Computed example of a mutant assay.
Amino acid sequence: MIDILTELTDSPPFKSIFALQELEALTPTLLEQLSSEERRELESFHNEKRKREFASSRRLLRQLAGEWGVPGEAFIVSKNELGNPFAETSSSRFEASIAHTDRVVFGGLSSSEPIGIDVEPLDRNVSDRVRARMMHPVERRNGLDIPTIRLWTIKEAYVKLRGQGLRLNMNEVCVQREGAEFIVDLDSNNRAKVCSFAYREHWLAIAFYQ
């Protein structure tokens, strides 16, 4: 069942919607939700879990669009040249972001501004060696003391916001805590905010430009 996050206290200052749901089985009902192009892409995957992630995420984005009154058949999900998702109708474009775990899919839509999201289980173990590799020198110096997997989701959401994928290493991302907020400065006039919170046994992160 789709679980729309309706009470985000630090939600982005633009029209946006987010939801979390369990990965779905590849039923005929789910497959009917996909466009012909999406079905072709689905068949290119050989891993069953990857197929479930793909189909579940496309259905979730269409459900989110439906919350805004956008008919599913008119809502086309595509990828840009870097592989980042977005969606279009005949008259509108939406920014989108998707994240998965072994059990859930987390999706977000924005009516105008780019977003980046991530999700990981609260109890996922990450080694100290991985933490050392992903820490920025300023984070070490300032003693950024949060669970490693939470920091991972914050940085991953920011990387997705930037849309640079593997070209941006996590140790290049400097996360600073300002009260209850997490900030990544791009330059003196531009910064990104990352909402980070625990929900249904997962860390969720939502990044957007301020």
Rank of each mutant, 00 (worst) to 15 (best):
T153V: 13
L144M: 07
R150N: 06
V159M: 14
R133A: 14
T148R: 07
P147Y: 09
G143Q: 07
G143K: 06
P147L: 01
L151N: 03
I149V: 15
T153Q: 06
E156A: 02
M135Q: 14
R124A: 04
T148K: 01
V138G: 00
R141S: 08
R150Q: 15
P147A: 05
R133G: 02
R162G: 11
M134H: 13
G143C: 06
D128K: 10
R140H: 03
K155S: 00
R141G: 00
H136D: 06
R162A: 14
M134F: 11
I154N: 07
N142R: 11
L161W: 13
P137K: 05
R129S: 14
A132Y: 15
R124S: 11
P137Q: 09
Y158H: 11
W152K: 08
M134E: 08
R150M: 14
R133Q: 10
R162F: 06
K160W: 12
E139K: 02
R140D: 07
K160L: 03
R162V: 07
A132I: 12
D128E: 15
I154Q: 13
L151E: 10
R140A: 02
I146M: 12
I149D: 08
L151M: 04
L151R: 09
W152I: 00
R140V: 03
E156P: 02
V138P: 00
R131W: 12
